[in-house]
């Protein structure tokens, strides 16, 4: 269990940027980037969220202004995983502030990180560790060929990226997490803990909760299977796809929190304490899971997206017009 690290190195390159380039990139982009991603020579990071624009990603304000053969970047991105190590960034920036709506003004870049005017500043996480950065762009110049697709297509490409990120097309947020810590690990942990002088696993209240977790875990795995059988998904054809990230990450958050609660006095210990259960992995994993319930679209935003899908299925009205994020999903799923 101790080796089940919460994140694999170059996850953004392997999980999101690579698949994106393979799916939508030009031949030249494929030639330039894919090999380095696979060999992990080139670490990638993601520049989507900004300090003032997180859930409302479409409102991103980092500017990219075309000047001759270059774009000039100004602004700031945040929650940049691997920002310190990365050679490249998938970057969402505003090329046209006057566009007909906020989404249409965005463009997508495969930007170098090592350029004058691009600096990173580490951010300490809730776990106590460092892992991501804030990235600053101060009159930074990158080659114009870094633009992916056309100007104005940034939102569309970003939505495709989010599909990989939210595991719609098999990324890390769901399937990967199921390889990290499962109910089987929780059960093993319960064998080693004492409550009322007996192994915790013998406590019927705990047993009941464990069974509930196992059922939810299986729900998720069975949903994955069923989502491949269209005839069995007719009511809300998108719901399994849209809900995977929400369901998996929320289940893991609750399971990990529970794993801390059941440790008795040891639940008060943290990593680096010699007496901490399993080296404090549950405590650490619990804190870390918030990266998944918040990152890639918070659970609350995911709820909105699924709700709007469900509501749209039942009525064609104003809801539809306001759910561009969802429409981005649908366009790419069916397109």
């Amino acid at each position: 269990m101790n080796h089940k690290a919460p994140i694999i190195f170059n996850t953004i390159g392997l999980g999101w940027a690579g698949p994106l380039i393979l799916k939508m990139g030009t031949e030249a982009e494929n030639q330039k980037y894919i090999k380095g991603i696979l060999t992990a020579d080139d670490i990638w990071c993601q520049g989507f969220s900004e300090p003032d624009n997180g859930s409302d990603l479409g409102n991103a304000q980092t500017r990219a202004v075309r000047e001759g053969d270059e774009y000039v970047l100004n602004g700031s991105k945040i929650w940049t995983t691997h920002g310190t190590y990365a050679k490249y960034m998938i970057l969402l920036a505003r090329t046209n502030p006057e566009a007909k709506n906020k989404y249409a003004g965005l463009s997508f870049f495969l930007s170098p990180m090592h350029a004058p005017g691009i600096t990173t500043s580490p951010i300490r996480k809730i776990t106590g560790e460092y892992g991501f950065t804030q990235t600053f762009f101060d009159e930074a110049r990158i080659p114009a060929e870094c633009l992916m697709g056309q100007e104005g297509q940034g939102w569309m490409i970003a939505m495709q990226t989010l599909q990989f990120e939210r595991s719609v097309d098999g990324g890390q947020a769901t399937k990967y997490n199921f390889k990290s810590i499962t109910s089987a690990d929780l059960i093993e942990t319960c064998r080693t803990i004492q409550r009322d002088g007996k192994p915790l696993l013998e406590d019927p209240v705990v047993q009941d909760q464990l069974v509930q977790f196992i059922m939810e875990e299986r729900n998720f795995l069975l949903n994955l299977k069923r989502s491949e059988l269209n005839a069995l998904c007719t009511d809300y054809p998108m719901s399994l796809m849209l809900s995977g990230k929400l369901e998996a990450t929320e289940l893991f958050r609750r399971m990990r929190q529970y794993a801390v609660s059941l440790q008795g006095a040891k639940g008060g210990l943290y990593i680096h304490d010699d007496e901490a259960l399993n080296g404090g992995i549950w405590q650490h994993a619990y804190f870390n899971i918030f990266s998944a319930t918040i990152g890639g679209g918070t659970s609350q935003v995911q709820n909105n997206i699924i709700a709007e899908h469900a509501l749209q299925r039942r009525a064609k009205d104003d809801f539809g017009k306001r759910t561009q994020l969802l429409q981005g999903y649908i366009a790419h799923r069916t397109g």
């Binding site: 069923r226 719901s239 809900s243 369901e247 699924i306």
Partner: peptide, 9 residues
């Protein structure tokens, strides 16, 4: 909806 999808599976 999500609970129902799970139960249906």
């Amino acid at each position: 909806l999500n609970k129902m999808e799970g139960a249906r599976s």
